[in-house]
Write a protein that binds this DNA or RNA. Structure first.
Lengths: 337, 337
DNA sequence: AATCGGGTGGCAATCGTTTGCCATTCTTTG
DNA sequence: CAAAGAATGGCAAACGATTGCCACCCGATT
């Protein structure tokens, strides 16, 4: 069923049908109803491709993640999916595999079929992002670049809470386990940790950079044990969970010998062993808000002041069982091999 | 940059450019190279929408899941994503929210923008599926319908292994914890369990139907405890993990008081507490194979005999720490409240 | 030398929808 | 009552690519 079929059925011109369906005020109410009835009866489905060709609007948003495997992005995907669906948009999922190049390339290639894109964890430089944003409506998640809409998850303030929590448990030597190199949030978390630590008179070191995946947990765990710190804050839960299994293998007890705090509170953080104390991030909400921001910008008659440049989402520390009082004396010394 | 720009730049007709780019043999080698060079230089990107309009091919495949939240589908999404990307196809993600109606509707609405669809866990009736398959190239996962391509994960044989494993540990009363009502694999798993149990002279019951989500684990756990069985096989890991936390709350020890076997071996099954004995399914592979099957059918010159109607993927039992010897006498009787 | 046919390339229609512009009709308004 | 202007609907040209058909050029065959 095309618009022309409906036109024939109702005895009007195709253009009238188009207008009746897409621009309500532009056509007589009576004719419009006739057209709408016919459309319903003939089970008309507008052809997205054809529409896109002239109008440029595709009703499709791309969601770019660095790794579909990472449960953090599950949350994002879920959030965007919900919001997009309810707005009648389609959801194009793109995995950039941690490569900024793939990121730009894909976006370039798909530009004509996209109304906009959500960048969860971009690996792009600031410049590249600004350039990209000039080409295609963009909202970033956890990436703060001037002139690009963004939703920031305020994990740093959660990390600060974590440090205070650890300090109050008597820890005075905290290690930060770094995530991947080009990750912006990684820096922000470390800075927050260092500053808060300084304020409370506790020592802070950082180790690594480790890929934010479970297998890297082994190396990270070994490295932490080596530092003789009594507590650590880890870039994200995935890595922390990886550490947990390695520590168990090595006989390091959590939290008795080492307290661990993760970040994000992803799927799994509450049922791993021990359940992880972590900075809970509103991941799904971040996805939903990102979509909402993008869509409100895309809407033709949104007044400029109604477009939010940036939304900051608060986080909080969720205390579970991977953190406990510092028992320095009780901690066994373990050879590193 | 459109095809016309390239035509102008090289002094040929747009149609020639089109042919040079899409149908190599049809145009003189020399001209083709000139055109290709120009295309590269002008950074030409074919407009998918326009192409779709005439040719019908959109280079887009929809992946339908019942619940983006379920880690089982993470695996599927990941697998399809990989395979689609490497084939140059775009990946449209659709969450059907467990509703067959949404399933058909979405597919209908998007039909013109889709080359095909992967149905992971369809909730549709056999008839509906066949009808749908007539409209749009389809591959189902874990759903066996005559005339529709499918990839089946042979979890039932894994369940049989699980039953044998439990029997060898001395359990002679096994409960199957049922998944959602319209789930096809659910029936298959129960059947496998019952048959294998009978062969080994162990009793088998089924309880529930529980939604395949973590929160339902509480009800499921209570129900299992009530049966006085010493071991259970659970529809999937997600539900099993939910049960684990509830059992801990109630002081039921796993595996000492109750052995638990899950299905799928999803993300989390190896680091929950205790790590779950489970039927490991090649989830990612299922996704990849599904895409490969679909794409080979879509390819214009695939000989009919090369199109696989069905692929069955084997599973195996992964024994971890949630199963152990039956110690009936030692099992405490716990009031159900 | 006339004919044939493969190899190339252009013309123009087409896909389904949108939209600028014009024509008509109807309603106001001075 | 005439003129202005709003409301309504149609025409036709896009959008960017694909593709059937035809024309032309050349070398080969008879």
């Amino acid at each position: 069923m095309t618009i022309t079929d409906i036109a024939r059925a109702t005895g009007v011109a195709p253009s009238t049908v188009s207008r009746a369906l897409s621009r309500p005020g532009r056509v007589n109410a009576a004719t419009r109803q006739r057209i709408e009835a016919a459309a319903r009866e003939l089970n008309y489905i507008p052809n997205t491709q054809a529409r896109a060709l002239t109008s440029g609007r595709t009703q499709t948003i791309a969601v770019l993640v660095t790794d579909v495997t990472n449960p953090f992005y599950f949350g994002i995907i879920r959030g965007t999916q919900q919001e997009l669906k309810s707005a009648g948009y389609a959801n194009l999922l793109i995995d950039t595999e941690d490569s900024g190049e793939v990121e730009t390339q894909m976006l370039h290639r798909m530009r004509p079929s996209l109304d906009g894109a959500i960048l969860a964890a971009s690996r792009l430089s600031e410049r590249a992002l600004v350039n990209l944003a000039a080409e295609i409506p963009l909202v970033t998640i956890n990436r703060n670049v001037r002139g690009v809409q963004s939703v920031m998850i305020d994990t740093p303030s959660g990390v600060a809470q974590a440090v205070e929590h650890l300090a109050s448990l008597g820890h005075n030597d905290i290690v930060y386990v770094s995530g991947p190199e080009k990750s912006w949030p990684n820096e922000a978390r470390w800075t927050a940790l260092r500053n808060t630590a300084a304020r409370h008179g506790v020592q802070a070191h950082r180790i690594g950079r480790f890929p934010a995946a479970r297998p890297s947990g082994s190396a990270a765990a070994d490295a932490v044990v080596n530092t003789r710190a009594t507590a650590c804050v880890v870039f994200n839960d995935l890595l922390a969970i990886g550490m947990l299994t390695r520590l168990r293998e090595r006989g390091v007890r959590v939290p008795e010998d080492l307290s661990i705090v993760g970040c994000d509170d992803v799927f799994g953080a509450d049922f791993c062993h021990p359940p992880l104390t972590t900075v809970t991030a509103p991941i799904g909400k971040a996805g939903r808000v990102a979509v909402a921001m993008l869509l409100s910008r895309l809407a033709p008659r949104t007044p400029a002041h109604a477009i939010r440049r940036q939304v900051i989402l608060p986080t909080h520390l969720t205390i579970r069982e991977s953190t406990g009082p510092c028992r320095l004396a009780a901690r066994p010394i373990i050879s590193n091999g």
